[in-house]
Write a protein that binds this DNA or RNA. Structure first.
Lengths: 206, 206
DNA sequence: TAGATTGTTAATCGATTAACAATC
DNA sequence: TAGATTGTTAATCGATTAACAATC
């Protein structure tokens, strides 16, 4: 039914979703565009404009109901469905990701975690057992995994990406610093907490 | 001398920097705008346009010399200086950040890591000893720390942010999901590997 | 009623892109 | 010379913002 969202709109909506989710956890029931603006640094008019494209969710003089706004944004972002993702690498970053409660909150299921280290295989991270990397292709198919998350050192990233592609995965999130080459029908999204920190510093340091 | 960079330009330049840095590690000596485009998904014309604002760094028919491009982008982003940052939280994410070689490569110095857990205090993470969180204010002043990185659980984030602000820090990078309230002269940049993954998924999942 | 905040318009600004001459 | 790729123009599109009537 809906138009395809532009990248900018989808990015902003997911930030609103994150703020509103947190606000609900803090026990709030209503939130104004100005409050969302304070937390996201996105202009309040922009926020109202983004939301009003999809409907009249707010009440003038009052603000937005947190519960209904959550539902509306989720509908727009179509995150109702359940999606299975796999994490490659059970190191520090893989552990940090696997232990985050955020995915379950948003209908994303971490279906498998892979590592080559026998010490790590069989251990549980965030409720998911670490599987032997050798079984990647089989498990990816069995579990209907659509997204692969690379949380491995830069030196292993390309090989792991190749293996994910061989296993039929077409969306890769790369958390290493490495540059990844893939066939043109595979989407690679690279981001990295350290690189991200650097970006932020460029804005704020003199 | 230079104008203040817009947020968009600075963000793109720092991505070019990251790609070119990696390309040098891989032994490359030249790179074209098209190659940078392949890795960043930023339009090649946009890349040439961004760079040509600051000078003629490329050679027609050949591309850009990696060494000279690195220097030019660093000059533009003014990352020559040494900056001291502190990480609060020596958990999984703090460890992942502290162990990244990226900061040293870009002239950012992780001067201190803080935790309240006696088990962790005194241990070394990425070459930096973990200090007692109780000493934050004193060490922040001694070491001339200008940026605080919050790598703590959401429940502790606000308190840690308050303490950073009391210690005189005016730039905070928040890696927790929590919403942080600070005085208006403090800049908070929130990002989180898990939230970031969610954003990426919104674009790529049906 | 008075105050607050949404929804919407209109105007501006920056980002994006295609196209191509210049030139290595 | 032929091929490749930069630097730059011109045109378009989307993002951003200020302002304010509508209305809770």
């Amino acid at each position: 039914m809906a138009e395809r969202l532009t990248v900018g709109v989808a990015a902003r909506l997911s930030r609103y979703l994150q703020v509103v989710t947190q606000a609900r956890k803090m026990g709030k029931e209503r939130i104004s565009s100005q409050e969302i603006s304070d937390y996201t640094n996105i202009n309040a008019t922009q926020i109202r404009r983004d939301l009003s494209t999809f409907g009249k969710f707010g009440k003038r003089g009052v603000g937005y109901s947190i519960d209904s706004l959550l539902n509306e944004i989720r509908k727009i972002l179509r995150t109702q469905g359940q999606h299975n993702i796999a994490v490659v690498g059970a190191g520090r970053l893989g552990e940090a990701i696997a232990s985050s409660p955020i995915f379950a909150e948003h209908g994303i299921n971490i279906a498998a975690i892979f590592d080559t280290d026998p010490e790590k295989i069989g251990r549980s991270l965030g409720g998911v057992l670490v599987s032997d990397y050798a079984g990647l292709a089989a498990i990816a198919r069995e579990q209907n995994i659509v997204v692969g998350v690379l949380a491995v050192p830069a030196g292993s990233a390309q090989r792991a990406a190749d293996d994910l592609v061989s296993a039929g995965i077409r969306i890769i999130i790369n958390y290493s610093e490495a540059l990844i080459d893939t066939p043109s029908d595979v989407v690679v999204h690279t981001s990295n907490p350290a690189v991200d920190l650097l970006h932020a510093l460029y804005f704020h340091l003199a």
